[in-house]
Design a protein around this nucleic acid. Structure first.
Length: 152
DNA sequence: GCCAACGTTGGC
DNA sequence: GCCAACGTTGGC
């Protein structure tokens, strides 16, 4: 089992939006970064646990947990010319972009803020807190996962 | 709203 | 293959 962190802007799609989806499940579309795509395509497995991170908002931080319920498959939002994430270089025969389905597990009792995560020496290896990091999907080690959960 | 950091694009 | 220009991310 692997652990991950995925970012989303709460104004666009926050953890409550996931909670309100049918089956509390949604496809994680719109990722247009090759590194992030490769992780979804190659490394994310059914049952993997994922931190839901709110970015670009008043208090950036980890707000909850979700689970991978469908492994990588073509991101069809790339095929729709009217979609914000349309990519003319991707088509159903040769899909360039990949997504997974995630299911809500829980909302944390409080937001574990980016500031807290940065202050912890134990998390200095976490991609999230490394300078200039812009990945919207990143791996979390088991030790980091447990440490962060213990902060709640 | 600003801007640093970084990925992508495209000319050469 | 280099690298300047450009666009995006995301904290502050």
């Amino acid at each position: 089992m692997n652990y991950w962190l995925m970012k989303s802007e709460p104004d666009t799609f926050g953890i409550n939006d996931l909670y309100n989806k049918p089956n509390r499940t949604e496809h994680w579309d719109g990722v247009r970064n090759y590194q992030a795509r490769n992780m979804m395509r190659d490394d994310m497995k059914l049952g993997d646990q994922v931190f839901f991170y709110h970015s670009n908002c008043d208090v950036p931080g980890i707000v909850g947990i979700m689970e991978i319920v469908k492994e990588g498959y073509p991101d069809f939002s790339a095929f729709d010319p009217d979609d914000k994430h349309f990519d003319s270089k991707s088509d159903p025969e040769h899909p360039r972009w990949i997504m997974v389905d995630v299911k809500y597990v829980k909302t944390l009792s409080r937001t574990i803020t980016l500031k807290e995560l940065k202050d912890r020496q134990e998390l200095s290896g976490l991609a999230l807190v490394r300078r200039g990091n812009r990945l919207s999907i990143m791996p979390v080690s088991e030790d980091q996962w447990k440490f962060i959960l213990a902060l709640e």
